[in-house]
Simulated scan of single mutants.
Amino acid sequence: MPVTVKSRYLGNLRVENTHLQSGTKIITDAPVDNRGKGESFSPTDLLATSLGCCITTIMGIVAEDHGIDIEGTEVEITKMMSESPRKVKEVVVEFFFPPKVYSEKEKQIIEGVAGTSPVPLSLSSELKQTIRFYW
């Protein structure tokens, strides 16, 4: 199996991550509340972002399959940490759909796939995933 990401520790609690297929780079930085500068995504920010992006992607696939236009949908992702042990305890993902007319059936189709993509299914059941839809 080919390597997906190559990471290099840069010092000062920063890591450069390279997606080998595309060459795209992401720098992570420790958050301010954990000895970092907070100048980039933290690893836990990426976890929360991955959850939101994975749900958005599967909704996009299903929307395309059913001829539903959700282009322009905005997503707000909120990560909440617990102190002991220090871990992500909840991620809230809120979807704000563009001002278009969606039928109840279309809404059900889109909302119905929210927890069925790889990231939500891969995370621990201890992590609370709160998903909200605003049509």
Rank of each mutant, 00 (worst) to 15 (best):
Gly38Ile: 06
Val5Ala: 05
Pro120Met: 00
Leu13His: 05
Glu83Leu: 05
Asn17Arg: 08
Val62Asp: 03
Thr18Asn: 06
Ser50Glu: 00
Gly112Arg: 06
Phe97Met: 13
Met80Tyr: 15
Ser50Cys: 09
Pro85Arg: 10
Thr44Ile: 05
His66Met: 09
Val101Thr: 15
Val92Cys: 09
Tyr9Val: 02
Phe97Asn: 01
Ser7Pro: 08
Ser122Phe: 01
Ile26Thr: 14
Gly112Phe: 01
Thr116Val: 04
Gly60Gln: 09
Tyr9Leu: 11
Lys107Asn: 07
Asp29Cys: 01
Thr73Asp: 11
Tyr9Asp: 12
Ile58Tyr: 10
Ser84Thr: 12
Thr57Ala: 15
Ile70Val: 13
Glu39Met: 14
Glu74Met: 10
Thr28Ala: 01
Asp29Ile: 03
Arg86Ser: 13
Ser42Gly: 12
Pro120Leu: 00
Lys6Val: 15
Asp45Tyr: 03
Ser42Gln: 10
Val101Pro: 02
Thr4Trp: 04
Leu121Gln: 14
Gly52Ala: 07
Val5Gln: 05
Lys128Thr: 00
Leu121Met: 11
Glu83Tyr: 02
Gly36Pro: 02
Glu126Phe: 02
Lys89Gln: 13
Cys54Trp: 08
Arg14Leu: 13
Ser40Glu: 15
Leu13Cys: 01
Gly23Tyr: 10
Leu46His: 11
Gly72Met: 10
Cys53Gln: 06
Pro120Val: 00
His19Tyr: 14
Thr4Val: 15
Leu10Cys: 01
Val113Tyr: 07
Ile55Met: 08
Ile61Lys: 08
Lys6Ala: 06
Arg14Pro: 04
Gln129Ala: 01
Glu16Ile: 12
Gly72Leu: 01
Val113Leu: 05
Thr130Gln: 09
Lys100Ser: 03
Ala114Gln: 05
Thr4Tyr: 13
Pro85Asn: 04
Gly52Thr: 09
Glu71Arg: 14
Asp69Lys: 14
Glu74Ile: 07
Asp65Leu: 11
Ser84Asn: 14
Cys54Ile: 01
Glu71Val: 09
Val32Ser: 07
Glu90Val: 03
Ser50Thr: 04
Thr44Val: 13
Asn34Ala: 14
Glu16Asp: 12
Lys107Cys: 07
Lys79Ser: 06
Val92Glu: 04
Lys89Asp: 13
Arg8Cys: 05
Ile61Trp: 00
Lys105His: 14
Val3Cys: 05
Leu51Ile: 10
Pro43Ala: 14
Val92Asn: 10
Ile26Tyr: 08
Ser50Asn: 04
Val62Ile: 13
Ile110Pro: 13
Val119Ser: 05
Ile68Val: 12
Arg8Glu: 15
Leu127Tyr: 03
Glu76Leu: 06
Phe41Thr: 08
Asn34Thr: 08
Asp45Thr: 09
Lys105Pro: 06
Phe41Glu: 02
Val15Asn: 10
Pro31Glu: 03
Val119Gln: 01
Ile61Thr: 14
Lys79Trp: 00
Ala63Asp: 00
Met59Ser: 03
Asp45Met: 04
Gln129His: 00
Val32Gln: 13
Val93Cys: 07
Gln129Glu: 02
Glu106Lys: 12
Val113Trp: 06
Ile26Met: 15
Thr28Pro: 02
Met59Gln: 13
Val91Asn: 10
Pro43Val: 08
Leu46Asn: 14
Pro99Thr: 14
Gly72Asn: 13
Ala114Asn: 11
Leu20Ile: 03
Ile70Met: 14
Phe41Cys: 06
Pro31His: 07
Ser82Phe: 03
Gly23Ser: 11
Tyr102Met: 03
Gly72His: 03
Pro120Phe: 01
